[in-house]
């Protein structure tokens, strides 16, 4: 049938047009779960500095499965993601390789990278308290979230979100599973609405009078305050202040974004160059100024909006220990019906 061969020809042509030339040398292929807008400035700066073109694909969930399924044929050079747990998962699935770089080990503090060199933290964010501006509150402990005096006043996103399971895992590290379960039940009882939506909704819902306090990440405040999110978000953020909460016997829970070199990276040399670039002063400054994250490298200044929260005391629980409690935390979230 003529129609058939025409269709086939069109299909082939269209697919070719669609497919980028992935095998061109000196390109670098990045698989990322970080949203394109967040890493675009960094990658553009890298291309400008080195002349290496960077191809990306944004995959929210299933990055590990995708790379694993592609196996030796995978074009991926760099795997980028947020949350220490996700980085550990990548390493455990065997889709990363160890790299040995003095530049990286010098720039990234030991507790923010894999001991064997499979992954490196590139930026940090705190899991902090957003509180209604008029609330008389200057210090806060994570433990207080379950205090009955906040009944019907707490907003938070799904308990199963990696940002929250990491916080709850840290809680387990401090207090053990039994106490954590009781605490989670208490927080659940204090919720003003379903545990759903995103972190910015906490600010919006505080403005909307739905809640008084909530847990969210630090960088959203920068994005909203700077006006980068538009006028409305600038209004939301004016309704809140940020308090850096701590564990009673510790500091503020911090998570990372990071990257790893893929096990079968076709362009390993370029991949390493990108990693080293990302911990350079220039790139760390972009993390701080464009994304409002805390740089991992000592000596690079945080953005003034973030600095205004006061000094950050990072909780001492090692990331690896938090990661180890993650599944337990997730199971507890289900057990107390946190999201129901």
């Amino acid at each position: 049938m003529h129609a058939h061969s025409f269709l086939t020809a069109t299909a082939v042509a269209a697919l070719l047009a669609l497919s980028p030339s992935t095998s061109v040398a000196a390109d670098l292929n990045v698989y990322t779960t970080r949203e394109p807008a967040l890493i675009a400035p960094l990658l553009e700066a890298f291309t400008a500095a080195t002349g290496t073109k960077v191809n990306t694909v944004f995959l929210k969930d299933g990055l590990a499965e995708r790379v694993a399924s592609e196996g030796e044929s995978s074009p991926a050079d760099i795997l980028m993601t947020v949350d220490a747990g996700n980085l550990v998962d990548l390493a455990e699935r065997g889709v990363t390789q160890a790299v040995d770089s003095d530049v990286l080990t010098a720039a990234v503090p030991a507790q923010l990278r894999d001991a064997k060199g499979h992954w490196f933290g590139l930026s940090m964010r705190g899991r902090v308290l957003y509180a209604a501006k008029d609330l008389d509150l200057t210090t806060f402990h994570y433990e207080d979230l379950a205090d009955p005096k906040y009944k019907g006043k707490v907003c938070i996103r799904s308990g199963q979100h990696p940002y929250n399971t990491a916080l709850f895992a840290d809680y387990i590290a401090h207090h053990g599973a039994v106490e954590t379960e009781a605490w989670l039940s208490g927080v659940k009882n204090n919720l003003a609405r379903k545990a759903a939506g995103g972190d910015r909704d906490v600010a919006k819902d505080i403005l909307g009078g739905i809640c008084d306090i909530g847990i969210a990440n630090t960088y959203y405040v920068g994005l909203m305050t700077s006006g980068k999110g538009g006028e409305e978000q600038a209004k939301w953020v004016q309704a809140i202040k940020v308090v850096l909460p701590t564990f009673k016997d510790g500091g503020t829970q911090v998570n990372i974004s990071g990257a790893a070199v893929a096990k079968h990276a076709p362009n390993k040399a370029e991949a390493l160059k990108l990693l080293e670039y990302l911990v350079s002063d220039d790139a760390q400054k972009i993390y701080a100024q464009a994304n409002y994250e805390y740089p991992v490298k000592a000596g690079v200044a945080v953005d003034p909006i973030i600095a205004a929260f006061g000094p950050l005391t990072i909780d001492k629980t090692p990331l690896s220990e938090i990661v180890g409690h993650r599944k337990e935390a997730s199971a507890l979230v289900d057990k107390v019906g946190f999201d129901n």
Partner: peptide
Amino acid sequence: LLLRPLNVETFAT
């Protein structure tokens, strides 16, 4: 989202 090649975005993604 999960299956598209490098550098390909659609409105939905």
